[in-house]
Design a protein around this nucleic acid. Structure first.
Lengths: 203, 203
DNA sequence: GTCTATATTGTGATAGAC
DNA sequence: GTCTATCACAATATAGAC
C-alpha cells in the first residue's frame, strides 16, 4: 500500500485505541475518534465499515500485545529460576509500557459479548506444558516445594498485573500523604514480585 | 415504608445490579432491566429518576460491599500473622461470594467518569496506619523482614483479587483438559495466598 | 479519499390515562 | 403505583457530490 493511503487509516487506529481504551466499546463514540484527528466520521466507515470492525482491530492488537512472547518464555530451555525471572520481567514490562491495555481487555471480557471470545482465544494461547514439566521435575529433585504450576502462574500474573489493573482504585485506597503514590508503588515492584514468588517456592 | 411499596423498588435494584454488573453503565439498557422483572421502563423513572441515579445506587452498594470491614481488620488488636490471615480470609470471602463485583468496580473506575470518583472515595477509605505500625514493629523485632506495608497490602490484594477479576480470560489461558478449571483454581487459593505472603515476610 | 447531508435506529425520558 | 404512547435526541450508518 502507498504511504499516503495508509496514513489516515493509521491515524484512525491510533485515535480509536485511545478512545476505546479510555471508554470501552459501549462508551466510545465514533465522533470523538474522528475529532481526535480532525477528520469526519465518514472516513471511519470508509476504512472500517462498522464500529464493531474498528473495535475488533484495536481489540486484536491489544490481546496480541498482552500475550505475545509469553509462550516463548515458558518453552525456553533455561533454568527454572531464570525462567521465572524472565517471565516476571516480561509481564512487568507489558504493564509498565502500556498500563491501560490489560484493564481494557478485562473490562471487555467481563461484558459478555459472544463475538469477542473467539478473537481472544485466537491471540492468547499459552503453552504451559514445558513449564509444568519443569516445575514437576524441580519438585521431585527437592529444588522447590511441590506446587501446582497453574497456581504458580496465577501467582505471577496476579502480582504483576493486579497493581496496574487496580491503579485507579489504588490511588484512593493506598495513597497516604506520607507514603509513595500508587504509581510509584507499581514502578518498583518487579523485585518484590520475584522475591515473593521465589520465597514461596523455596519455603 | 410499607412493604408493598418497597417491593417493586427492590426488584428494580436487583435487576439493575445484574444488568449493570454484566454490561457496565454504558452497555446496560433500562429496557433490559425492566424486562427482567416484568415491568415497564416508566417504573424505573418513577423510583429512580435517571439511569445515572439507578446506577449510582448499584455502584454505591458494590463499593460498600467490596471494602466494608477491611479497615476494622487492619485496626484490630491481634497478632500480626493472625491479622494477615484474617485479612486474606475477608478478601477471599468477598470474591468467592460475589466474583463479579470487583471487576465491575474496576471497569467503571477505568472509564473516567468524573462523578464516580467522589462516590468511590466516600465508601472506600482504608485506615492503614495501625497496620503499618504493626509491620514496622515486627520488623524492628526481627520477627519479619523489613517491608513496605503498602506493598504488603498490594501483594495480598493482588493474590486474592486478580484471579477473580481475570476469571473470564483465565478460562482461556489456564484451562488445560487435564488440569483444573479456572473456577476450581480460584476456589482453593486461600491457603496458597497465605503461604505466599507469609513466606515472603519470613524469608 | 474526503466531505456534507440525511436516513435510520436506539434509548433515555416525559405526559397523561387509569 | 403502573401502564401506554410519544418525544427528543444521540449515534451509527449510508448516499452522493467533489
Amino acid at each position: 500500500m502507498p504511504a499516503k493511503t495508509t496514513q489516515t487509516r493509521d491515524e484512525i487506529i491510533r485515535a480509536a485505541r485511545a478512545e476505546f481504551l479510555a471508554r470501552g466499546y459501549e462508551g466510545a463514540r465514533l465522533q470523538n475518534i474522528a475529532d481526535r484527528i480532525g477528520v469526519t466520521k465518514a472516513m471511519i466507515h470508509y476504512y472500517f465499515n462498522t464500529k464493531e470492525g474498528l473495535f475488533e482491530h484495536v481489540y486484536r492488537q491489544s490481546v496480541d500485545f498482552m500475550f505475545r512472547g509469553l509462550s516463548e518464555v515458558l518453552k525456553k530451555d533455561i533454568p527454572l529460576f531464570k525462567k521465572i525471572e524472565t517471565l516476571i520481567s516480561a509481564c512487568s514490562d507489558k504493564v509498565r509500557t502500556n498500563p491501560e491495555v490489560l484493564g481494557f481487555i478485562l473490562a471487555e471480557s467481563n461484558r459478555n459479548a459472544d463475538w469477542l471470545l473467539p478473537i481472544f482465544e485466537e491471540h492468547s494461547s499459552l503453552e504451559k506444558t514445558p513449564f509444568a514439566e519443569q516445575i514437576e521435575e524441580a519438585a521431585s529433585d527437592y529444588i522447590i516445594t511441590s506446587v501446582d504450576s497453574d497456581q504458580l502462574l496465577l501467582n505471577i500474573f496476579s502480582l504483576c498485573y493486579y497493581p496496574a489493573v487496580a491503579l485507579p482504585i489504588n490511588r484512593s485506597l493506598l495513597d497516604g500523604r506520607d507514603g509513595k503514590s500508587a504509581e510509584e508503588l507499581v514502578t518498583d515492584r518487579e523485585g518484590i514480585v520475584l522475591d515473593t514468588v521465589l520465597n514461596w517456592l523455596t519455603a
